[in-house]
Design a binder for these strands. Structure first.
Length: 923
RNA sequence: GCCGGAGUGGCGGAAUUGGCAGACGCGCCGGACUCAAAAUCCGGUGGAGGUGAUACUCCGUGUGGGUUCGACUCCCACCUCCGGCACCA
């Protein structure tokens, strides 16, 4: 990528800004001068360049702190004030950690492949690389203007050839590995090679090509991952219709890792709701596989030979209800449908299959409650009861989960129940709820809970009287002994569809031979660079059956075809999805310029430490997509010995959104918020009334606010403070420009307290005020505590409170100002550096030790205790801080106000909580 | 439908373990400075009653119950908003 531009440093003017009688007042103008000065200083002095182990200046005695922001997509419109919310928070933490003596790794980069740049290229004929680089340069400028202390020397973009070379390398690792279920980890495919023929290898590789039903979006001209399709069956990007159709595509075998991805969530410190979302997505369920024999079509001898005994395996989480299975259902796409269908039913069945195939997922969703289906005419044999049960096909059974077939237990499954009611199929009760004997006659509900088995016995096994868990194990053991079933764990998670029909993505390091063989490139042949092209148009269409033609099919032949060993090979024409680059960028940050390895081993070991990244901050929208994919890649790399931790993100923190008012006109179309005016309690856009709502800030709601404007109006220190002061980092909160002024005033007061507004010289007093001194200790303690628990809003409140006290007391001594400037610095680094400089320091304060506080200064000699009578505060008591419970009780009962209120009453109980409260119960 | 998260003044929010609800900021009201305004500084500000101003009283953390000497905080039921999943066998 482009190197970050050298600071846009207009030379700060040496003359003070003229502002009437206060030439040195902290105004937006002065703030901007100070900010530019220090941003330039940090750049020129490489203040935040972080040495790696082995580099000069690296101190191995310091503990490490790897703090990462989810990197942004370099959009053409640049940042809005919602983006830097998390960045400012991590910046505060990093600045604080540096002062606490940590080696801080705090990098930033860009997730720069993806659709918008490509679409822009299609519309304007500008190469995506050009717009991407331009957008990155602009966003780097914006980020620097907020004073974020990134090590810009480590900046990378996923579109850099030197980066995606290694993305391709990771892909080769996946391609050249298989999952060894015996040891539950990935191993090199070469270890399997001795035992298996080539064709079989493909079935084991972690990256493989397969003809699978995929989500095909003709309007985007590409396929999409399950995760990129909404529940309405439309594309998450652009909201276009998506169709299921079989296509030969690249897949990653993430399902092999389902168990570890779920279990290892135990190892990480993440918000519980996010862990839960991942667990739900992986969707582990315990149950059993049960084989149902297909009953012979003709009466007579059951089997014509050993091979004709066909069975249909089903997966169930309730094997204990097998005695209640009164029919079976196959998904319409099930391969055995043909075989079980009788001649009488053949027409009806093929008609239904045709209908089901033509219905898009969208349609299937809309009337998801109404059950449809047809009998195949065939029967299966319930292995528990030995009875013949009819086999139906219905679209409420999905081919993609389990085996695509179910045993239907209408007595204890709501869907089966509804289906049975509709088609008059028998319903047998085999589980009784605990306690009351079947409350009423549950005529519209199946009992799906746990209870006691009934009506469940044959000659060999009886579940009657057993509780559901006992019944499950008993019946599973019996099925196993008969060889018709076994306990099994299934996951909802599907393999990851990994190819896209786009130009602006990583090319696969893969060749196709004329005979269909797949050949992976050697590591030494990387990178496979994107070919130069002028036309990036994907082949889009309204026709769901149109075949995909990726843009790379129009690449020059010199790129497309490769000669090798006398044969002609065609390059893979699909590209990788946008998720690929973000799956491992945090590793590259550890060692971004390494030309020989994806990351140097020593750098990886040091920065990723024992639990991986120490703090990873980003939005909750990546809960299942990015975070799951990245964990999967990381585990593969871990298994192959390339990284040293089982999990990449030891500690995750989700910041909330910044919301903003959005306005819609009478047609419901969003109008530009900036042009809306408030009048007489209503809101108007170009004279027309519009209605107001609150929504996530962004382009789509036309309510974005640029940080550039706020920096210009108040300075970026004010912006930083405001964003942190709005509320807790994890909460979503509305952007309210009216409130910003408060933080600007605070900085103005800080400045005025420390600097003579007439001549710009430091203004300090000689004698320390004892109240101010103890308050300063208290403030240091509070700020420290609040930063550690990421409560930046209350940390700033503590700073403001101190400032108010110091102002009232008439100022600070030089020594007090020193300490105050240091604790202010993480939040408002520019003004802090300027004041530090004015106090006579020649160097940046970035690595100054954090000021200490004296615990003794925090405790008062006397404290005021509230006295409650019957739970209401009626009096205040001043007692020595170390007073005993007895002394406090005596003092409370002796209090004049208390005795007068207690007159005529009997004291029943006195609760004394030292340091907190006294509560007297009397009647 | 299921699973999460959240509901506190006019607004954003605070209350770290069950212990003085409303810190801090905005806004608003009053005052100082000013010819005047802006900026700045000082004071007030949950609601209702009450007083000459004090004092004082009652109500108050979405709703209704409960546990407790004491509940914004814990438990049960419900309402609203936000996010996720959705025929997953």
């Amino acid at each position: 990528m482009t190197k970050p531009p050298t600071a846009n440093a207009r030379e700060p003017s040496t003359a003070p800004p003229a502002d009437g009688e206060y030439p040195f007042r902290y105004t937006a103008r002065l703030a901007n001068v100070i900010e530019t000065r220090w941003q330039t200083y940090w750049d020129q002095h490489h203040t935040f360049v972080t040495p790696n182990p082995g580099d000069p200046g690296f101190d191995s005695d310091k503990p490490k702190f790897y703090c990462l922001d989810m990197f942004p997509y370099p959009s053409g419109v640049g940042l809005h004030v919602g983006h830097p919310l998390g960045y400012i928070a991590t910046d505060i933490l990093c600045r604080y950690k540096r002062m606490r003596g940590f080696n801080v790794l705090h990098p930033m980069g860009f997730d720069a492949f993806g659709l918008p740049a490509e679409q822009f290229a299609v519309e304007h004929g500008i190469h995506p690389r050009v717009t991407t680089e331009r957008n990155i340069a602009n966003m780097v400028r914006q980020l620097k203007a907020i004073g974020l202390s990134y090590d810009w020397g480590r900046c990378l973009a996923t579109t850099d050839t030197s980066y995606y070379k290694w993305t391709q390398w990771v892909f080769l690792q996946l391609y050249n590995s298989y999952f060894d279920s015996a040891v539950n980890k990935a191993r090199p495919i070469s270890e399997l090679r001795e035992k298996k023929p080539d064709a079989v290898l493909a079935e084991h590789r972690l990256a493989y090509m397969a003809e699978v039903p995929v989500n095909w979006c003709p309007a985007l001209g590409t396929v999409l991952a399950n995760e990129e399709v909404t529940s309405e069956g439309r594309s998450e990007r652009g909201n276009h219709p998506v169709y299921k159709r079989p296509l030969n595509q690249w897949m990653l075998r993430i399902t092999a890792y389902a168990e570890r991805l779920a279990e290892d969530l135990e190892l990480v410190d993440w918000p519980e709701p996010i862990k839960l979302m991942q667990r739900n997505w992986i969707g582990r369920s315990e149950g059993a596989m049960i084989e149902f024999q297909i009953a012979p079509a003709m009466p007579g001898p059951p089997a014509q030979g050993p091979g004709s005994m066909k069975t249909i395996p089903v997966f169930t989480t309730r094997p204990d209800t097998v005695f209640g299975a009164t029919y079976m259902v196959l998904a319409p796409e099930h391969p055995l449908v043909d075989q079980v269908t009788t001649d009488q039913q053949r027409d009806a069945v093929s008609e239904y299959v045709r209908l089901a195939a033509s219905r898009s997922d969208t349609e299937r969703q809309i009337d998801s409650r109404r059950k449809t289906g047809v009998p195949t005419g065939g029967d299966a044999i319930n292995p528990a009861t030995g009875e013949h049960i009819p086999i139906w096909i219905a679209d409420y059974v999905m081919m993609g989960y389990g085996t695509g077939a179910i045993m239907a237990v209408p007595g204890h499954d709501q869907r089966d129940f509804e289906f049975a009611k509709q088609f008059g199929l028998p319903i047998i009760e085999v589980v009784k709820p605990h306690g009351v004997p079947t409350p009423g006659d549950s005529s519209d509900q199946a009992f799906t809970g746990e209870g006691t088995s009934i009506n469940s016995a044959n000659n060999e096994v009886s579940l009657n009287g057993l509780s559901t868990p006992q019944a499950k194990t008993t019946v599973t053991r019996w099925l196993e002994s008969k060889g018709v079933g076994n306990a099994e764990v299934r996951y909802k998670l599907r393999d990851w569809l990994f190819s896209r029909q786009r130009y602006w993505g990583e090319p696969f390091p893969i060749l196709h031979a004329a005979d269909g063989r797949i050949v992976a490139l050697d590591e030494s042949e990387l990178p496979v660079e994107l070919p130069e092209m002028n036309d990036f148009t994907p082949h889009t269409s309204d026709d769901p059956d149109a075949s995909p033609r990726p843009p790379l099919s129009r690449a020059p032949d010199t790129w497309k075809y490769v000669k090798r060993d006398g044969g002609r090979f065609e390059r893979e024409l699909n590209t990788m999805p946008q998720w690929a680059g973000s799956c491992w960028y945090y590793l590259r940050f550890c060692d971004p310029h390494n030309a020989d390895r994806f990351v140097g081993a020593e750098a990886e070991r040091y920065w990723m430490g024992e639990r991986g990244i120490d703090l990873y901050v980003g939005g909750a929208e990546h809960a299942v997509l990015h975070l799951l994919y990245a964990r999967f890649w990381h585990k593969v790399l871990y298994d192959l010995g390339h990284v040293s931790t089982p999990e990449p993100f030891g500690h995750l923190f989700n910041q909330g959104y910044i919301q903003a008012y959005a306005y819609t006109d009478e047609r419901g179309i969003h109008v530009d918020s900036e042009k809306v005016i408030e009048q007489d309690g209503g809101y108007f856009f170009e004279g027309r009334a519009v209605s107001r709502s609150l929504g996530k800030m962004g382009k789509s709601l036309k309510n974005a606010v640029s940080p550039d404007d706020i920096c210009e109006q108040y300075g970026c220190d004010t912006l930083r403070l405001y964003e942190m002061y709005m509320g807790p980092l994890q909460a979503s909160k509305p952007w309210n420009p009216r409130d910003i002024i408060g933080l600007h005033r605070f900085l103005q007061r800080v400045w005025r307290l420390a600097v003579d507004e007439q001549n710009g010289n430091p203004a300090v007093r000689d004698e320390a005020d004892p109240t101010v001194e103890s308050q300063l200790h208290r403030t240091i303690a509070r700020v420290e505590q609040d930063i550690e628990r990421q409560a930046f809003n209350t940390a700033i409140a503590a700073l403001i409170e101190f400032m108010n006290i110091a102002t009232t007391a008439g100022g600070l001594t030089r020594d007090q100002l020193h300490r105050f400037v240091l604790i202010l610095a993480p939040f408002a680094p520019h003004i802090a550096e300027e004041l530090w400089c004015k106090l006579g320091h020649k160097e940046s304060l970035a690595y100054e030790p954090w000021p200490a506080f004296d615990q003794a200064m925090l405790t008062e000699n006397f404290i005021e205790l509230p006295v409650q009578l019957g739970g209401k505060v009626r009096a205040k008591l001043t007692v020595p801080a170390d007073a005993s419970v007895k002394q406090i009780e005596a003092a409370a009962l002796a209090d004049a106000k208390v005795t007068s209120l207690l007159a005529g009453k009997t004291v029943r109980k006195v609760v004394v909580v030292p340091g907190k409260i006294v509560n007297i119960v009397a009647d």
